[in-house]
């Protein structure tokens, strides 16, 4: 008897050393993944490498930067040998400054109402649709959502955006800034992002005798079996590198550095 075929979703192969292995092949296409991490945990580098690996495979990519000016971002990312400025020049990687986008849309104000949120969604979707973006990074969704005062509106924003991008076949990484990456922490600033996201990748630090070791852990990824172990992460010139974190060293000394 022939074995019955098992349905597997097509993957967006991240190309990041070790991550595809953890995800058993990559991120399911069209997923919205929350990359939640503390400051300096390597979120932006990870996200940028995700785009660069896509660009190297000929995919159109977009990066919305709200936390640092694109000029700085590009300058920082140039030190990595995997990055080539030509990718930006030729339009394979499109970096958008969110403050410029806000200004163009008349959104340079303190809070967003429903119309503003729809305008923002429409703009992002327009860009993705027009250029044919298949990999998108929003850095960070926390900064974007700061201007949306209602939790319900944040939920609508992320849900609608995620749905529309999925329809367009775009795999999205939403970067979320968190202050703690302990077991009890929320993986998002507003509490709603983590419920809506198809996947959650947590990044943080483990303290070992006064030294901080960066770690990455895939907490959730709909549509794929995946490792849920903590992985040690190193940001090298060749990109992000991962290895399973030592079991006897995966917990910060006694307690988390951020307290219980």
């Amino acid at each position: 008897m022939m074995p019955s075929s098992v349905y597997t979703r097509d993957r967006c192969v991240t190309g990041i050393h070790g991550l595809d292995e953890i995800l058993r092949g990559g991120i399911p296409y069209g997923s919205t993944v929350l990359a939640a991490g503390t400051c300096g945990s390597g979120k932006t580098t990870l996200a940028m490498e995700f785009l660069v690996r896509g660009a190297l495979a000929g995919e159109a990519c977009a990066h919305f930067t709200a936390t640092e000016p694109s000029v700085k971002l590009l300058e920082n990312i140039r030190q990595y040998s995997f990055f080539d400025m030509n990718m930006v020049d030729t339009g394979l990687i499109n970096v958008f400054d969110v403050d410029v986008l806000y200004s163009w849309l008349g959104l340079d104000k303190a809070t967003f109402d429903l119309d503003d949120v729809h305008a923002l969604i429409k703009a992002i979707v327009d860009i993705v649709n027009t250029i044919g973006v298949t990999r998108l990074v929003i850095d960070s969704v926390t900064t974007l959502c700061y201007k949306i005062k209602s939790e319900q509106l944040i939920r609508d924003f992320l849900f609608t955006l995620g749905k529309k991008l999925a329809t367009l076949g775009c795999t999205t990484v939403l970067i979320s800034e968190i202050t703690s990456a302990t077991e009890n922490a929320h993986w998002s600033s507003f509490g709603v992002e983590e419920a809506i996201a198809d996947g959650i990748i947590v990044m943080g630090d483990v303290e070992r005798m006064g030294h901080l070791l960066r770690f990455l852990q895939v907490v959730k990824m709909r549509g794929t079996a995946h490792s849920r172990a903590k992985h040690s992460i190193e940001l090298t010139q060749l990109g992000v590198m991962l290895t399973p974190m030592l079991k006897w060293g995966a917990v910060s000394d006694q307690q988390s550095r951020w307290g219980a």
Binding site: S70, N94, V100, S103
Partner: peptide, 12 residues
């Protein structure tokens, strides 16, 4: 518009 937006690094 998108091409111009991608090349605009600073808010006017």
């Amino acid at each position: 518009d998108i091409q111009r937006l991608a090349q605009t690094r600073f808010v006017d």
